[in-house]
């Protein structure tokens, strides 16, 4: 199967974007992240629902208000609350942090959408095929075990004649469920191990079924991404794109080096979107 971008490229793309957003918390970067995230949202066919917007605003507001209540750094004190200074800078930091959180969450959802289990397997690739196998089994067993836990809970409830009331009862029930789950999963594991043995596990050195043949474009894209990423990081390390909040709010965005950093991050976010072929492939995958 020929794919346009190797899974590892996708992986590092996400890692880079999220890492930059979380470490360099600059409002302009957050805006860029938000904008490209929303574009991805569109590409993936998800709709921006009212519920999402409200939830995002709630996170923003809650953090903005909560931060000054716990942190009194900042030079402009608005008032004192129970002896603790409520500063405007702490408010600003809360807002900033809320924005970082919201955008990071957005990107995490995009990550989970784009990185299918196949992609995760290919991230491990031939080199880490054993890890890949473990990952695959995790993907297989996690929903299975969750379903089984649900079944156990129903079974216990049916036995007891009702769901547990009160925390003591709930605790006892959960303990029982856990024990049941443990034994069950051990037994399950034995049989699965037998099945694996039956199908030749351990007979020879495992090979790796590679389904992805990525085009050479992938290498170019990866190089571009790395270049953009290192630009942003270098600029940040050297002091550009600084958004100081404490003790005075000073957001640097006028200097040339800042603008360069912003442009590099913009590029980083949008590189995989550049090729319409990539987008087409994604759309096809999801229809």
């Amino acid at each position: 199967m020929r794919v346009y971008l190797h899974s590892r490229t996708w992986f590092i793309y996400f890692i880079m974007v999220i890492a930059i957003l979380m470490s360099i918390r600059h409002p302009v970067l957050i805006l860029i992240g938000l904008e490209s995230g929303l574009i991805w949202w569109k590409i993936l066919g998800r709709k921006l629902r009212a519920g999402h917007v409200f939830a995002a605003l709630f996170i923003l507001g809650a953090l903005a208000v909560a931060n000054p209540l716990t942190s009194s750094n900042g030079a402009t004190i608005l008032f004192y609350l129970n002896g603790r200074a409520f500063t405007a800078e702490a408010l600003a930091y809360g807002l900033l942090f809320g924005a970082v959180l919201v955008v990071t969450l957005l990107w995490c959802v995009i990550l989970s959408e784009l990185m299918t289990t196949d992609r995760w397997l290919n991230v491990c690739g031939r080199r880490f095929r054993k890890t890949g196998l473990v990952l695959t089994m995790v993907f297989r067993f996690f929903p299975l075990f969750t379903k089984q836990w649900q079944r156990i809970r129903e079974g216990q409830e049916a036995l007891e004649g009702g769901s547990p009331v009160g925390w003591k009862e709930t605790f006892r029930m959960t303990k029982r469920e856990l024990l049941c789950m443990l034994t069950w999963s051990l037994e399950h594991g034995f049989v699965t191990a037998d099945a694996m043995l039956a199908r030749g596990y351990g007979a020879a050195k495992r090979s790796f079924f590679n389904r992805e043949n990525y085009r050479s474009a992938s290498v170019g894209v990866a190089i571009l991404l790395l270049a953009a990423f290192s630009t942003v990081i270098t600029i940040a390390v050297r002091g550009g794109m600084e958004a100081e909040i404490y003790p005075y709010v000073k957001i640097h965005m006028d200097a040339a080096i800042d603008i360069l950093g912003f442009a590099a991050f913009f590029l980083l976010c949008h590189i995989p979107m550049i090729s319409y072929k990539v987008l087409r492939e994604e759309r096809r995958m999801r229809s």
Binding site: S71, N73, A75, L101
Partner: peptide, 16 residues
């Protein structure tokens, strides 16, 4: 983030 909020209290210069 909570760790960060609390640590920033220590990392940033405590003004007062």
């Amino acid at each position: 983030s909570f760790f960060d909020a609390f640590s920033s209290v220590g990392l940033n210069r405590r003004v007062f």
